[in-house]
Write a protein that binds this DNA or RNA. Sequence first.
DNA 1: GTGGTCTAGACCACG
DNA 2: GTGGTCTAGACCACC
Lengths: 132, 132, 132, 132
Amino acid sequence: MQTLDTMLITIDADDPRPLYQQVADGIRELIASGGLVKGDPLPPVRQLATSLGVNMNTIATAYRTLQDDGLIAVRHGAGSLVASCTITNRTRAELLSPLRPALTQLVLADWPLGKILEAVKQQIHLIKSGSS
Amino acid sequence: MQTLDTMLITIDADDPRPLYQQVADGIRELIASGGLVKGDPLPPVRQLATSLGVNMNTIATAYRTLQDDGLIAVRHGAGSLVASCTITNRTRAELLSPLRPALTQLVLADWPLGKILEAVKQQIHLIKSGSS
Amino acid sequence: MQTLDTMLITIDADDPRPLYQQVADGIRELIASGGLVKGDPLPPVRQLATSLGVNMNTIATAYRTLQDDGLIAVRHGAGSLVASCTITNRTRAELLSPLRPALTQLVLADWPLGKILEAVKQQIHLIKSGSS
Amino acid sequence: MQTLDTMLITIDADDPRPLYQQVADGIRELIASGGLVKGDPLPPVRQLATSLGVNMNTIATAYRTLQDDGLIAVRHGAGSLVASCTITNRTRAELLSPLRPALTQLVLADWPLGKILEAVKQQIHLIKSGSS
DNA sequence: GTGGTCTAGACCACG
DNA sequence: GTGGTCTAGACCACC
């Protein structure tokens, strides 16, 4: 059981992703890292909104996205909580397709295979440990 | 030297990426795979547009993106060509940041590290060989 | 005369209906099935609330809804009871309007008329027999 | 091929459904009736919004709902169109569950089975013919 | 007090 | 000109 105070999500205006997706991705990482486990409550929409300095609706959209993923449950009038820590019902192709352009950039930057794998391993470690 | 007819870029309306980015990513993969090398001409904007069934501006935007990468040179009135086969001027963080959310999905899907690395190796191989 | 212990109402967090309406609908089905008849007492708000694991106000709202239907009588300080087993004062249009979107879904799912009528017959039988 | 002018969707402030759902349900009926077929363009978000006297975002939400159903395709910057005329990937239980409370009301109103079936047949006919 | 919905209006991304 | 995103603020439904 985790207190909500550990919610460390950062919003970056220069990030190409829309704000609500940055928030959703941030919470996904928190769940992936074990920082949030099944049953943990999420902060109220309004609280997280003021805490991150964004609009209420932005957070609501992020929560709706996570609800569609089956990762969280939003209970009208009673707050939201982590419903599951794993994503299922997603095909291998759907999971891998966002990887393609990201890896293409590394190939074009002339990174050798070993360096890429090393970086991937490091990123996964960072995700699982909940760092930066 | 490669003829332009081998340009095999596929556009998918269900892909979350905007069309212009699908086009740009497609050309990036062609360059990464060696299917296009330095000096190779790119098809005229109009021709690629009609060939892919998209708007001319969509292709123009894609070319502009690639120009910003330094990968292609757009010569007003004289067509475009591949200017370089490697991306430089990109920080390690910029290159790795799109990897984060893609890998988070795999972690949430409960893929073990080995399976992820195997998939990454396979994807890189597909990119370098210019497959699917 | 029916004892209250046979109250078998199930609450489902994934149901799109609000909790109070699930409770009200459940009691409506119990009355429609003959599981509760005119004069039968309903469980006290507090008891049903703890029994279903929901808030007291949720039950109170459900009872108020049923009272508006004329199905139950809520006597301050003396418990509630089934006041009638039939709904009146409802226009044909009011009764049929919730059917429209439900049937539209079946039409969009390409169910032939016969299959829909069969399913309707089965559902009515389930309601009248008080099953699942 | 249908012109957009035939879009006859009515918004009712007294309807318990939220506005965006009334719009989505209205378009679902238009598709179910054959008034809109695969490939038909939908009116631009802004146009339908002013035409119905609601906010742009309300229509955008309705369109997003229909997109999630797979019924329409929304193409950023290029309008929306009907992508399919049938709903799939929905379990029998999911399709039938909204029928339960609607039928319960009719049972409580003491409608005999025959009258209910007759009304259901009529409603389906109205849906398929695109009437009121 | 919680989340849901809606509005008006702005700005941006896209085709 | 299209749809997407975001804001500020309001009101309602729900628990």
